[in-house]
Design a protein around this nucleic acid. Structure first.
Length: 818
RNA sequence: GCCGGGGUGGCGGAAUUGGUAGACGCGGUGGACUCAAAAUCCAUUGGUGGUGACAUCGUGGGGGUUCGAGUCCCCCCCCCGGCACCA
């Protein structure tokens, strides 16, 4: 008997769990595959985005398991983070309690969805046995100079009361709360991701199974540019102005210099009046008085000497010059840089043309800058050269004269990881008045985060108020000292969790190198594209760091990346604020997990956004109902026999089954296109349903086809609707779990049809169809095509000049009008 | 502005290597079953013309290559995503 969905789903989930059906031993000798979905933040409840993410991953995991591969498919919790603190403030409960309760709730939801996780490997990053290893890795980084403490301008979110990394500022707003981010000068810990900039960039070329989109975003984010640093001596003072340019070819076109007003180091050389003006501009910018795209500047009174020509040009302080990029100063070539041009316009500075665009161009320096290629003019020794050659020549000259050198600049900044928050991993350092920064000795790890705290609004980090946490003794001198009260950016936990799943209870080390050698990289990594330059960049960095620290031998953590689209309803992303949220639990209760998962996989290919339509869910429930009925009728039919001819509807059914297997196999394995795999399953059911009718009696041919369908269909369904598949498998007398059964194999001999219908075109338009035997000789096919009555009609109207035959596909007859 | 991805029926989407455009599902229409409804089953469903066989138009717009173009090339329009004073 096939039981109602609620009953059967609960039962199969319980049986899978009781038998540890999806636990995997990592030391087997079979082929292996690591399928991973981005782990969730335990925010309270699973949402449809999660269901989509995990349904995709589970389909892949289940498929490969049936292919006889050892599949590692773990799950865990990205459990540190701000929402826990906000909830604590709101409800007066410690963040730990709130977090663990959410994990319980969400774990239950995931179980009700029937995902095939190895639950024995579950991790939560807020657990001391997880973060102790992270602290150890940080100490290693500290020793290697890959982690440093610095005072700099940082991104500060007033709402979250913490610092943000550059990657976490989206369009000037906080990635988490959309609050405006402002600059603030602070001490903090930085990880030297810039030391890996080139490697991270080059590594992208090896990631040929990543979407181009993500690789491009990372490339842009790293922002490598090759150029030249050039020193301009300042007139009358003992100082130089160093600039970075990617256009040394335009060096002879410099008419002024521009520095960031935030630079204070040159103040001492400026005439008093100018110094005051620069200070005022600095003040205006700090108070947000100068708009983002506004170009404001003042003359600093300083004069720079051109290193090649000796010409003297003014130095301006200009709002458009970024303090953090390059040297915080630029040489301005208004004729060949639009930004310099606009500034020159505004302040009536001279424009000097040094590149003559191709004669075809009607460019005028009165109207805009010319940033394109051309021939050098008014540039001393390089006159007449194409500008790309001049680029190298001038760079050579600069280097030979000792006034500068070729360099590479990056947009990427070091990763600021200090967070002035409580619910995160403690940074394992101690501050001693005498010894300075002292790492926590390794035998004292983990530095535990006290969990019994009270969090209050606007009170800053509760850690700073906990004397029992802050007050300690210096490991070096033994005198009273203070612990660091900032915690790590929670993106650190997610930068290595995929390694931890291999040996989640290992107390000795973060990762088992032998298992990592065998199981890494992750074969299929599935998650949202929103992490393109956050989690995915950090993880690539951290993997390399752990490699260089000797933990693993691995460059790239994720082989194939699948970025799934959003879940949309009524034209907008599902969100509480839009009020268009569909609750997964509600769907499970009304339609069951199988229907919900199947709909999600069917409604759109994984990378595209998915439009949630209740009618579509109902359609999917109908489909599964039909599967049950056709299946039951088939079992009934198999008990009755008749003599006589095989009926038309059965004739091709066996072949269709094998075509379906073939299509689904490539859809899942190569194309990751589950919507068409499911469509194929539906088509097969339609043909089967038509044949079996209300439960017809069968002759022996028909019976063997139906027998094959009954034995195969549950297996084809298993990656998508695992509960019903188990139920059907059991009813049909299958051994063990269908989840452990073998994926059906298409028999190539049975894919071939006896007859195929192909279109016959005349001048590219379909004028008839003929039925032929597959592989029929060309002449025979043409003969049939020409004698088709409707085709013949068109042939009569002209002369046949060309005949094209695509074997078993199409015939095209070309006729010239006569 | 630059980079990336798109634009196909009433809707979600198929079309894998240049070879039958619209698979599959939703929705619609007609019918069967029923006292009736629901559920289910069957048929039909891109537009236009035609009783029909068929014809004709049709994959954002315009041009091109080809026996043949949703797919390749050129120009343009629109939508989505990313970056954006990065020197």
């Amino acid at each position: 008997m096939i039981r109602p969905f609620a009953e059967r789903e609960a039962d199969w989930q319980q049986r899978w769990e009781a038998e540890g059906a999806f636990n995997v031993a990592l030391d087997g000798d079979r082929a292996h595959m690591y399928v991973l979905e981005m782990f969730p933040y335990p925010s309270g409840r699973i949402h449809m985005g999660h269901v989509r993410n995990y349904s995709i991953g589970d389909a892949m995991a289940r498929y490969w398991r049936m292919r006889g591969v050892d599949v590692l498919h773990p799950i865990g919790w990205d459990a540190f983070g701000m929402p826990a603190e906000n909830a604590a403030i709101k409800h007066g409960r410690p963040p730990a309690e709130w977090t663990y309760e959410n994990i319980r709730t969400m774990r239950g939801q995931l179980r009700r969805l029937g995902f095939s996780y190895d639950w024995s490997r579950e991790i939560a990053t807020c657990h001391p046995e997880y973060y102790r290893h992270e602290q150890a890795v940080f100490l290693d980084m500290l020793e290697r100079g890959l982690a440093e403490r610095r005072k700099t301008h940082v991104n500060w979110c007033d709402h979250c009361e913490t610092v943000l990394a550059n990657e976490q500022v989206i369009d000037g707003l906080c990635w988490r709360c959309d609050n405006e981010v402002r600059q603030k000068e602070m001490d903090g810990w930085f990880l030297r991701i810039t030391a890996y900039a080139d490697e991270l960039l080059e590594g992208l070329d090896t990631l040929d199974e990543w979407p181009d989109k993500v690789r491009t975003m990372q490339r842009n984010w790293i922002g490598r540019s090759e150029g030249v640093q050039i020193r301009f001596p300042l007139e009358g003072v003992d100082a130089e102005l160093e600039i970075f340019t990617t256009r040394p070819d335009t060096l002879y076109g410099v008419t002024y210099m521009a520095i960031s007003p935030e630079r204070t180091d040159l103040d001492q050389w400026m005439p008093e009046a100018n110094r005051a003006a620069v200070a005022e501009l600095r003040q205006r910018m700090a108070s947000g008085d100068v708009a983002e795209d506004e170009k404001v500047g003042v003359d600093t009174g300083l004069r720079a000497k051109h290193p090649l020509t000796g010409q003297v040009v003014p130095v301006w302080a200009a709002s458009f010059v970024l303090a953090e990029y390059g040297t915080g100063a630029v040489m301005a070539v208004p004729a060949h840089d639009q930004r310099d041009w606009e500034f020159a316009r505004q302040y009536d500075l001279p424009v000097k043309v040094v590149i003559d665009p191709a004669e075809s161009s009607a460019w005028s320096p009165e109207e805009s800058a010319w940033e394109g290629a051309g021939t050098m003019v008014d540039s001393g020794p390089v006159n007449g050269l194409p500008n790309d050659e001049a680029w190298q020549k001038i760079a050579d000259a600069v280097e030979q004269q000792g006034v500068g050198q070729r360099t590479v600049q990056y947009r990427l900044r070091d990763w600021g990881v200090s967070r002035q928050r409580y619910w995160g991993c403690p940074i394992p350092v101690i501050y001693c008045d005498d010894c300075g920064i002292v790492p926590v000795p390794r035998e004292q790890l983990p530095v535990r985060l006290p969990e019994d705290v009270e969090v209050v609004a606007g009170g800053g980090s509760p850690l700073a108020r906990r004397k029992d946490f802050v007050e300690t003794t210096c490991p070096q001198c033994g005198r009273a000292a203070r612990r660091e009260t900032d915690t790590f950016d929670t993106f650190i936990e997610s930068s290595w969790y995929f390694l931890r799943y291999l040996s989640p209870r290992d107390t000795e080390r973060p990762v088992d190198p032998d298992l990592a050698r065998r199981w890494m990289p992750v074969d299929h990594y599935i998650g949202g594209v929103e992490h393109a330059v956050l989690h995915l960049l950090y993880s690539r960095f951290f993997t390399r760091v752990m490699r260089d620290l000797g933990y693993i031998e691995l460059d790239e953590p994720f082989r194939h990346l699948l970025t799934q689209g959003m879940v949309i309803k009524d034209g907008a992303k599902m969100s509480k604020s839009k009020g268009n949220v569909v609750d997964p639990d509600d769907m499970i209760a009304r339609y069951g997990a199988d229907t919900t998962r199947l709909f999600i996989l069917f409604a759109a290919p994984p990378e595209k956004d998915l439009d949630w339509q209740e009618s579509g869910v109902e359609g999917m429930a109908r489909f599964l109902g039909r599967v049950e009925r056709v299946f039951t009728r088939s079992l009934h039919s198999l008990e009755q026999r008749r003599d006589g001819e095989t009926r038309e509807a059965f004739a091709d059914l066996g072949r269709q089954l094998h075509v379906t297997i073939d299509r689904m196999t490539s859809d899942i394995e190569k194309r990751f296109q589950f919507n068409t795999a499911i469509a194929a399953l539906m088509e097969l059911l339609n043909a089967w349903s038509l044949a079996i009718g209300e439960g017809a009696e069968l002759n022996s041919d028909e019976a063997s086809t139906v027998r094959e369908l009954v034995e195969t269909y549950p297996r084809l369904l298993a990656p998508f609707a695992p509960h019903l598949a188990e139920e059907l498998w059991q009813v049909a007398g299958g051994e063990g779990f269908v989840a452990h059964a073998s994926w059906p194999q298409a028999d190539p001999a049975r894919l071939v049809a006896e007859r195929v219908e192909i279109p016959v075109q005349v001048n590219g338009k379909v004028r008839g169809r003929i039925e032929i035997a597959p592989g029929a000789p060309k002449e025979q096919v043409l003969e049939a095509a020409r004698s088709h009555p409707n085709v013949a009609r068109y042939l009569e109207q002209g002369t046949l000049i060309k005949e094209i035959v695509v074997p078993d596909k199409l015939v095209n007859l070309v006729v010239r009008n006569g």
